[in-house]
Amino acid sequence: MQIPFTVAPRPDTGVNNAKIGVWLFLASEVMLFGGLFSAYIFLRIGAPEWPGEIGGHMYERASDILNVPLATLNTIILIGSSVTMVMSWASLAMKRFDRYRLYMGATIALGFAFLIVKAFEYGEKFSHGYLPAENNFLAIYFVLTGLHGLHVIGGIIVNMYFMWPGARMWKTDPKRFTNRIEIAGLYWHFVDLVWIFLFPTIYLL
């Protein structure tokens, strides 16, 4: 038994199954982060001060607690990884598997770089005793960035799969493999997209 339209697009919709599937998944992710952002809005509107009191000290601005330069660095890293991701797909579309390896490797490395910077940031907070239980600003900061971080980890795992074991498909079914990289890319860009909103709302406002 063969499931139709796994590789070739269906004529009347113009897309294949995997692409519809991943976009549906991303739509649900939009609502997942949407729920958390709504919670952020709700808590923030209800709070008399934001970020408010942490460890007996009143803060007026998020940037007084959070490390904006590190977060800016992370923004650039993540945007860069999006570019390398889309380049890895473009390389496959141009039948350049060697370049694909290079760009995919760069994407994975940038993903790890993001996590390392994030770990420094978290460590700095923990060392000051800024824990999620301290106040709601920190709580929403840790939950939102933490969930985003989990998505980055998930993306790295997927990318590593396509970098090594999954790449065997390039020899047997190059077209399907190119599609798969595009799909993985859509997810990775979405993770980037979430960060693009996270960065100003949590760090700068």
């Binding site: 992710e29 997942l32 949407g34 729920g35």
Partner: peptide, 10 residues
């Protein structure tokens, strides 16, 4: 698809 994720967030 679209209503369950907010509960997951919650």
């Amino acid at each position: 698809l679209l209503a369950f994720p907010p509960l997951e967030a919650a």
